[in-house]
Design a protein around this nucleic acid. Structure first.
Lengths: 219, 219
DNA sequence: CCGGGCATCGGTAGCAGCACCCATTTGTGC
DNA sequence: GCACAAATGGGTGCTGCTACCGATGCCCGG
């Protein structure tokens, strides 16, 4: 049945990594890298203008993360399949990536074979997750099945919570945040507690790293 | 004069990246990857036990950074040349890498050619730096040439302090750090205080962001 | 040999972060 | 209108962070 060659967009901000991945992919007869991007905005442009079957997006890219890019690509070029490439075995990213429309989630610490398999699975419209991700999905599913409305009842931060996270990561104390937002210290405290519970985190350090990963603040 | 093939140790914690780089390197007739490592400790072991000409070390690796590994390799296997691979165009790390014995410093966003050139330069016992690094070196040299006994007027952390910063930024409490390093909580406390004073910082949040900027830890 | 930097350990005190409890007001969707 | 989530504010208490005081042993360079 001689499937046609899969035309791939490769987005990663590190040229060396990009070229390495290109070698891995181009070695396969059924895969061809036909476009590259070094950040999320470029990836969106390429997915629209080029004839792309599959986009491989690194999560950590400057200006716009792979997740944000995936959301835009879902909206503007819905026929493009997407695989998310991540340094982090992190459930937040996993869920966000899936919600953003990615059909695969591959760790950079994975084997070449996994990436290739994810590509082919994506073209068959099948998901591909690394084993740990499946476990996470199951746990999440067991924890809170209900949500008749659909998606994950899990943690998206509200606008206010996002503001608070940003300020925490910028080094403000609860008191400073309270003054900045003109609310009570107790409310700041409450927001922080809610955020940490949603994200499953334990202190400001983890919140800070989350905020940096999420691009809310610069390191 | 038919130089012998350069035997390379490749150390990076991400298998996909490692394999991509291996393809880039193995495509060259004069270079051969003969060993791999996924963290600093493994790299040190491999540099000792295998017959290695050149080690390519990623800076950001778990448990032990490429810099720390380079220090050990310099001590234990002084004939092994080293090239540092970094995600960050960061002067702190550039200088640390050079001090640790690396003869090359290549950004992951560089071109393949740069990495290959750095490898060959290392085998000729010549340094290789990306252009921005040379600029940084010059600036630093102009700013403070004298100071025979001492380094930079501005705070360079000691090796121990660096370890503590890394652990703080990874979310460890003082107590957890004390257990990890097998020292007293008070000593950890003292180190943290010294670090914050040196860097002019006020809490763990700022330290965390510093550590991420410096490439000591991943966000 | 001695000064100085580094690493180590101790006490005290205050304030901040964090957990767990409570409540009211507002807006949005059904 | 009613249900629900978001945002707001409060009380209590423990733990951890941070500041400021002290000290000793080690090693390295002059």
């Amino acid at each position: 049945m001689n499937a046609p060659i899969t035309r791939i967009l490769l987005a990663d901000d590190h040229a060396l990594v990009r070229n390495g991945l290109r070698l891995i992919l181009d070695a396969e007869p059924d895969l061809a890298v036909v476009a590259e991007a070094s950040d999320g905005a470029e990836a969106i442009g390429a997915a629209e203008s080029e004839r792309i079957d599959l986009a491989i997006l690194d999560i950590a890219m400057p200006r716009m993360t792979g997740i944000q890019a995936a959301r835009e690509i879902t909206r503007r070029a819905a026929d493009v399949r997407m695989i998310m490439l991540s340094m982090y075995d992190n459930e937040q990213y996993l869920f966000e990536a899936l919600k953003a429309g990615a059909s695969g989630y591959v760790l950079k610490s994975a084997a070449d074979k996994d990436l290739l398999e994810a590509c082919r699975a994506a073209m068959r419209d099948e998901p591909f997750l690394y084993p740990g991700a499946v476990t996470l999905l199951i746990q999440q599913h067991i924890q809170n099945e209900p949500s008749p409305g659909g998606g994950f009842p899990q943690a998206l931060l509200t606008a206010r919570e996002e503001e608070v996270v940003k300020l925490i990561a910028e080094g403000y104390s609860a008191r400073g945040i309270a003054e900045t937002l003109v609310i009570s210290v107790r409310t700041v405290d409450r927001h922080r507690a809610n955020i940490m519970q949603k994200l499953g985190m334990r202190d400001r350090i983890e919140l800070t790293r989350f905020a940096i990963r999420a691009g809310l603040v610069e390191p």
